[in-house]
Computed example of a mutant assay.
Amino acid sequence: MTPNPNGCRFYASPDRSEYRWLHPLEQPLNHPDWIDCTDMDDEQFEAFVTGA
């Protein structure tokens, strides 16, 4: 996954029930425990989502 054009990164909630693009300045303030998935390749992301 690559960063979207406005600089946001793709994050997952700790329980992996929600995923969303967040601006890097917003994430530490509003979602400090969310996990950055932006740099995961497809295989890593699938394993992360499915818990495999």
Score class of each variant (00 low, 15 high):
12 A>I: 03
21 W>P: 08
37 C>N: 10
22 L>K: 06
51 G>Q: 07
19 Y>C: 08
22 L>I: 00
21 W>S: 01
33 D>S: 11
15 D>G: 07
6 N>C: 12
15 D>V: 00
5 P>I: 12
48 F>P: 10
41 D>G: 14
10 F>A: 11
47 A>H: 11
42 D>A: 14
7 G>I: 07
20 R>W: 03
34 W>M: 05
51 G>I: 06
34 W>A: 04
38 T>V: 15
2 T>A: 10
49 V>A: 08
17 S>R: 15
41 D>E: 14
27 Q>I: 00
25 L>A: 09
3 P>Y: 04
20 R>G: 06
23 H>E: 01
9 R>S: 06
10 F>Q: 11
16 R>V: 01
43 E>I: 11
34 W>P: 05
31 H>Y: 05
44 Q>Y: 12
49 V>P: 07
13 S>V: 01
20 R>T: 00
24 P>V: 01
25 L>E: 02
14 P>T: 01
50 T>W: 07
43 E>N: 14
12 A>S: 12
28 P>Q: 08
36 D>Y: 15
32 P>K: 04
14 P>E: 05
52 A>G: 13
49 V>C: 07
15 D>K: 01
12 A>L: 09
29 L>A: 04
51 G>K: 05
29 L>R: 05
3 P>I: 01
52 A>H: 13
52 A>C: 13
24 P>I: 02
37 C>I: 06
29 L>C: 00
5 P>F: 12
11 Y>M: 06
8 C>R: 13
26 E>G: 00
51 G>L: 06
44 Q>L: 11
50 T>D: 11
22 L>W: 03
30 N>W: 05
7 G>Y: 11
44 Q>G: 12
15 D>Y: 03
2 T>M: 13
28 P>T: 07
